[in-house]
């Protein structure tokens, strides 16, 4: 298991989070400069609208600043922690927006979004253990996992998208998670 960084030098973000906790703004800026575009890419993939994703990123960075002291390096890397903060904000925003009626251009963007899961998979480097382990999953199950993680879809939405019963989708994802865990350990 690779949860803990092997060496602090490999995880500069953990050091910068320490800087944030001490009130050093340049440490937050360092995180922003290094990961801002990747974080915005992730948030845009979930939220689809760039301006909404930027607002989420803005809010998440204030949260990173304020919560940096609660980062525990014994639990995992600073990078994973920072991505999780932005990701959770993006998912919350997605859930809040869900009942707001969508306009036509949103629907168009939504339709174009369907290949996003294949793109997410293709973009993983061949050397990544996750790529190898995802490749072993049945394609439709892999898609279910990627629809959840990369696009933030719920069980029900995934069932609708894949035309499969809800219980089946839940079971697919559960088994896929177990298989990924074994494959990556």
């Amino acid at each position: 298991m690779t949860a803990a960084p092997l060496d602090a030098r490999l995880d500069p973000i953990a050091d910068w989070l320490g800087g944030c906790a001490r009130g050093d703004r340049s440490a937050l800026k360092a995180i922003y400069d290094r990961e801002g575009a990747a974080l915005l890419g992730m948030a845009t993939r979930i939220l689809r609208r760039r301006e909404v994703a930027e607002e989420v990123l803005q809010e998440a960075f204030v949260q990173i600043w304020r919560r940096a002291a609660s980062f525990d390096p014994s639990l995992g890397s600073g990078r994973a922690w920072v991505f999780a903060v932005v990701r959770n904000r993006a998912l919350n925003q997605l859930r809040d927006d869900r009942h707001v009626p969508v306009e036509d251009h949103d629907l168009e963007a939504y339709a174009a979004h369907d290949e996003a899961t294949e793109d997410a998979f293709d973009r993983l480097a061949e050397s990544e253990a996750l790529k190898r382990c995802l490749s072993r999953l049945d394609p439709v199950r892999r898609k279910a996992v990627l629809l959840a993680y990369c696009l933030g879809l719920t069980h029900g939405e995934i069932a609708g998208r894949l035309g499969a019963p809800l219980g089946t989708v839940k079971a697919w994802i559960r088994r896929s998670l177990a298989s990924l865990r074994t494959c990556m350990s």
């Binding site: 890419g41 994703a53 990701r87 997410a120 973009r123 993983l124 480097a125 990627l146």
Partner: peptide, 10 residues
């Protein structure tokens, strides 16, 4: 994490 980190940067 690598799935997030590999998203097309914006």
């Amino acid at each position: 994490l690598v799935l997030d980190a590999a998203a097309a940067p914006v």
